[in-house]
Design a protein around this nucleic acid. Sequence first.
DNA 1: GCACGATCGTTGAAGTTGTCAATCATTGAA
DNA 2: TTCAATGATTGACAACTTCAACGATCGTGC
Lengths: 152, 152
Amino acid sequence: MVDRASDVVEAVGSALDADVNFLLARANAMSMSAANRALAPLELKVRSYSVLALACAAAPPSQREIAEYLRLDPSQVVALVDDLQKRGLVERRADPSDRRTNVVGATPTGVELRAEAAAATQAAESELYVGLSPAQRQSLTRMLRTVAFPTE
Amino acid sequence: MVDRASDVVEAVGSALDADVNFLLARANAMSMSAANRALAPLELKVRSYSVLALACAAAPPSQREIAEYLRLDPSQVVALVDDLQKRGLVERRADPSDRRTNVVGATPTGVELRAEAAAATQAAESELYVGLSPAQRQSLTRMLRTVAFPTE
DNA sequence: GCACGATCGTTGAAGTTGTCAATCATTGAA
DNA sequence: TTCAATGATTGACAACTTCAACGATCGTGC
């Protein structure tokens, strides 16, 4: 039986496995499904967790900033924040300096859940990056950051 | 005006930018939108290009193998192959050893378009990874491969 | 040789996500 | 004081994902 991914690689050969973009896509797909599995008991997904995490920042972001950071359409952020707000994890605060913008901040309950969620995803992460040494993993993080946030 | 991603990072702080999974997601989103833009003139997307590339392999894969490699549901592969086949880029070949499976191979036209597409994406790639030295980029590729294809 | 469960491709339905244009309130600049 | 630009929101629509079901075929065990 040919079932494991490594077998498929062997069978298909090196058509795409040297392609950084493809590897990025596949690694991301694996990371996301693992993280979603880990977050499911908390009724969070990768998306809502990301928004919650950003809302926990010292300087809470506006919805527009969340959209840009997460590369989402602003209208998607509306739905995500709506949901988190209904669950009392997050709240929209008026920005005194610009009445158009909503600043999205976490409630105490939100901060708490965010901590639980962070622990849950970290466990899943460890499994995913098991093939990498701590130093390699750190190096991967650094390189991904230069790609994800250029010109810093 | 706060508009560039790096400004947003500065504003939001380090809520997620140490999170490998998040960086992976963001880097992938950027890579995909760049690749899709580059492929649009050829009427290809990242997905269809990936399938086409796999079909160009020396040992053409079955649809099931494509699905597993690309982490797609088999039913999605049906639609992708349908489209490429209608355009004469790819064909379903009977596998003599198993009449259930379709082997998906590229036609000469398909091989040709795949080459054009590879060139187009490569140009976009160079821009995306401009912050990395060739050695770093190679190292990134190697590490992503370990994550994307574990236990090799 | 034949029944049985498993696998491959396919279809269709249902849910989720992505994309886009339009709108309103507000802002900053001419 | 206008006027273009921006942030949030809504609604419509396309695209993608997920899942269960099906027919054809395979391999195993009897």
